[in-house]
């Protein structure tokens, strides 16, 4: 598994070249084969979504449909229980859209407070925040559910959206790391000029942290788009289902018969994620590498 370029050792030159070519060849073949294994399941899903119903289970492993058809997408989009996937997508976009905006704004504000302002018990609160990162959501979700059900908010989007307006520790930490890289000279110069803390935040820090805010926005969108547990708990009315909860009902093996439609709707639900991935790959890689965000 040597990956460092081997230094030329004291062997005749021809043999070294031969060795190097073989090594490159082995390397290229192995990364390619691994790439095939990695991407095959996803391509298989998209290929199956384009296969005719009688072909899905007879021509299982093939990635090329005999007669590509978009029929599965049309029949899948019709949904179930009288509700189409248009509704589910709208719900998911509301959930993910509001969450993304709320998370980015609130996290940026809090990150600035922690990163740049000295105040009483700052390190205590910061430790509290970091500790919540390892807290299983199950400890919070049961009492939350009870209170939300007292308030009669089950089957509304309030329990899904409300908690997103108070910053997310992961992203606060990510943006803090970024703010720490901005020279404090800028803040001090602005302060001497009579700029308030809020002014410094809005005029200096916020524009400069833009890359971190983009990373935050993408991850916040991903996590909410894929979120399954929260909508599963709070939404029982089919009309309120997000795509993830709808897919679960739609693909239930005891009820599903039209597998082409199941694959079509599954594949479609990945499209927004992959589009963002292709567009913002650089931000994602940076975000994970610098802060250890889970993908």
């Amino acid at each position: 598994m040597s990956t460092m370029s081997t230094q030329p050792t004291y062997v005749p030159k021809t043999s070294w070249w031969g060795k190097k070519i073989t090594k490159t060849l082995i390397y290229q073949i192995s990364v390619f084969l691994l790439g095939v294994v990695m991407i095959y399941p996803i391509l298989w899903l998209f290929a199956s979504s384009l296969k005719a119903p009688d072909e899905i289970w007879t021509n299982v492993s093939s990635l090329i449909p005999n007669n590509p058809t978009f029929e599965n997408y049309a029949s899948g989009w019709a949904g179930f229980g009288g509700v189409t996937f248009a509704t589910f997508y709208l719900n998911s976009f509301i959930y993910a859209g509001v969450t993304t905006i709320a998370t980015v704004l609130s996290s940026a504000v809090v990150a600035y407070g922690f990163a740049r302002i000295r105040f009483f018990a700052r390190s205590f609160w910061f430790t509290c925040m970091i500790l919540t990162l390892m807290l299983p959501i199950q400890v919070q979700i049961i009492p939350q559910y009870i209170v939300f059900s007292w308030l009669d908010w089950i089957n509304t989007f309030i329990p899904l959206l409300l908690p997103r307006f108070f910053g997310n520790p992961f992203f606060i930490f990510l943006i803090m790391q970024f703010i720490r890289g901005i020279p404090t000279d800028l803040d001090e110069a602005a302060e001497i000029d009579g700029c308030s803390k809020a002014g410094i935040f809005f005029r200096i820090i916020l524009p400069l942290t833009q890359p971190a805010l983009v990373t935050t926005a993408i991850f916040a969108f991903y996590w909410t788009w894929d979120d399954f547990l929260t909508p599963l708990i709070y939404l029982n009315d089919i009309k309120l289902f997000t795509v993830s909860v709808a897919l679960r009902s739609f693909s239930d093996p005891s009820a599903a018969t039209n597998w082409g439609a199941v694959f079509a709707m599954s594949a479609l639900s990945l499209v927004p994620v992959f589009v963002l991935f292709v567009m913002f790959q650089k931000y994602l890689v940076e975000g994970i590498s610098t802060s250890g965000l889970k993908g």
Partner: peptide, 27 residues
Amino acid sequence: HNLAGYLFISPWLFGFITFVLLPIVAS
């Protein structure tokens, strides 16, 4: 700058108390 500091972290602080701390105690 206690006032400014607490103002800036107040969204998280409120969320922490309401959606994390109290639920943990309740649970």
